Computed example of a mutant assay.
Amino acid sequence: MTIIASLLRNAELPDSPTARLDAELLLAAALGKPRSFLHTWPERIVSTEAAQTFADYLKRRLTGEPVAYILGQQGFWKLDLDVAPHTLIPRPETEMLVEAALELVPGFATVSLLDLGTGSGAIALALANERPVWNVTAVDRVPEALALAERNRKRLHLDNVTVLESQWFSALEGQRFDLIISNPPYIASSDPHLAQGDVRFEPSSALVAGTDGLDDLRQIIAQAPQHLNSDGWLLLEHGYDQGAAVRELLVQHGFERVKTRRDLGDHERITFGHLPC
């Protein structure tokens, strides 16, 4: 017989920077319990079936497979989202886009929002959940991603979100929005990080954007003014070393009040600009 404390103590994930957290998440899932259960009942005996499931999860994690893909779920903002290998895993840094959007627009305002490259739907659904009066459009070019975003939308009962297939603005001719927000691909094709860690398992099409990582950001910034209402905002996530380039692109295309915010690692992470009246 094996107890919870023993399984956690003997779990070995030498290449993971969050080994203890990974083990707790995987064991809690194997048991069908919240993580708090592990700390409340460390002496609880674990069934043979649950112990085997935990062992199988650990084997997958040892190969580098992300915990989110193993469990098929990831927390983002206040939501638990289904995730899959054909979309990026939502990350805490991206929550900065949600924070900025909520700060820029008064809570009582009715807003039309466009989320470009929605993936699992994380940004669009988080904002739709916070602001039920907003009209949110979430687009992606990958059919599997759209199906996942729609599944998350239905499970969360967010009826103020519309999910559409579109390569950036390609299916949105003549449509304008008050806010456009995006976490696009922004990694350079030669970046060594693409062969490291969890990123190895994520779709390259959602990560790589040309030789300098700016191809998609250039396209979005150039086309956004045609789809923004006057007095609207464009909010973008970008690489840690791309802040200056993104600010310059925004100014070149007529944006004002351009600002960049840093993440918890003190890296420039999101930049936004205002389209004047």
Rank of each mutant, 00 (worst) to 15 (best):
A84S: 09
V199T: 12
N129S: 14
A55T: 14
G265L: 14
F108E: 15
S170K: 00
A55G: 15
H274L: 15
L156Q: 01
L207W: 07
I187C: 08
Q52G: 00
S6D: 11
D82S: 13
F108P: 01
L228A: 02
L234H: 00
V133E: 10
H39I: 15
L234V: 04
P66Y: 11
I180K: 01
V251G: 02
S6N: 04
C277S: 15
Q196V: 13
F201K: 04
P66Q: 07
L116W: 13
D22R: 00
N160I: 12
V133K: 02
L58D: 07
A109T: 11
S6L: 04
G265D: 13
T40I: 06
A149C: 08
G72C: 04
L79M: 08
V258A: 09
E268M: 10
S230L: 14
V83M: 09
D241C: 06
R61S: 02
Q73L: 10
G213F: 04
F169G: 03
T94Q: 08
L7K: 01
L234W: 02
I3T: 12
F37H: 14
Q196T: 11
W77G: 05
A128S: 07
L26F: 04
E12I: 04
N129R: 04
L104C: 08
L158C: 07
T87E: 05
P14Y: 05
D56E: 13
P143C: 01
Q175C: 06
E130G: 06
T260S: 09
